[in-house]
């Protein structure tokens, strides 16, 4: 009996261990992996990303709430609605180019090559083309110009710049040299965008000897667009909020 005793005890506790193992297997736990610095950092990055996303979304919520607040205020006292609509109208007119704008900016005067002696073969190299104007305007837009005019013709989203022989047509009007391009924006940036070595404007001046005189100004006045808008084919799509 004494010889048998340990075996019975061992068998009994083995059963206990077996039961524990079985219950552990039943739980189907994921493999426990040690936390490495890399996985820790990965998780931290993920959390940071999600947090910044939350902040962004909160900002959007705040913005929408403010809009809602404005609309609710209209409901409370109705003398406000006119102001808000007028403000809206003003904003929309500004972005569509219907208002005269002023501010710091630059003025560029461009004229054809004035040399009386013709060097080279092609006369076309000596005059300003529509493409030259287009490239200069594009440079100005890249530099953050907020409003642009050419010979007091406002450049809007629908403005065309077209070659018309000795003249250039813009907004269905003909303009001729000298071209005066005005732009509102950061004068330093705008100057750099057309005046720095290697830019299109600098190339016009130094290679083709075309008159190109940019000048930074404290105050530039850009007239409003006076033409009409016509939408014959385009229909606006209602956007559900």
């Amino acid at each position: 009996m004494k010889n048998n005793n340990p075996k019975i005890i061992l068998a009994f506790f083995s059963i206990l261990v077996g039961m524990l193992i079985a219950s552990q297997i039943k739980l189907q736990v994921d493999l426990i992996v040690p936390v490495t610095i890399k996985s820790f950092e990965d998780t931290q990055n993920e959390i940071n990303l999600i947090n910044s996303e939350i902040i962004e979304l909160n900002g959007i919520i705040k913005q929408k709430e403010e809009e809602l607040q404005i609309l609710e205020n209209i409901l409370v006292d109705d003398r406000n609605i006119e102001d808000i609509l007028l403000e809206d109208l003003k904003y929309n007119m500004t972005i569509s180019g219907r208002t005269t704008l002023e501010g710091p900016g630059i003025q560029i005067v461009m004229y054809d090559n004035m040399d009386t002696v013709i060097e080279g073969f092609d006369l076309n190299d000596y005059i300003i083309h529509d493409v030259d104007i287009l490239n200069v305007i594009n440079d100005l837009k890249i530099a953050g110009a907020e409003a642009i005019s050419i010979n007091d013709q406002r450049v809007i989203s629908a403005s065309e710049i077209k070659c018309g022989g000795p003249i250039i047509r813009i907004n269905d009007r003909s303009i001729a040299t000298p071209f005066v391009i005005k732009a509102i924006g950061d004068p330093k940036l705008l100057m750099a965008s057309v005046n720095a070595p290697g830019t299109y404007g600098d190339t016009l001046r130094s290679v083709f000897a075309i008159g190109f005189e940019p000048e930074a100004k404290d105050k530039v006045v850009i007239p409003a667009y006076i033409g009409g808008f016509s939408y014959k084919y385009a229909n606006s799509v209602e956007e559900g909020d």
Binding site: L10, A11, F12, F13, S14, I15, L16, V17, G18, M19, L20, I21, A22, S23, K26
Partner: peptide, 12 residues
């Protein structure tokens, strides 16, 4: 002991 663990696993 092995048999015990097996029995225990079955019971568990």
């Amino acid at each position: 002991a092995l048999i015990g663990i097996l029995i225990g696993a079955v019971i568990g």
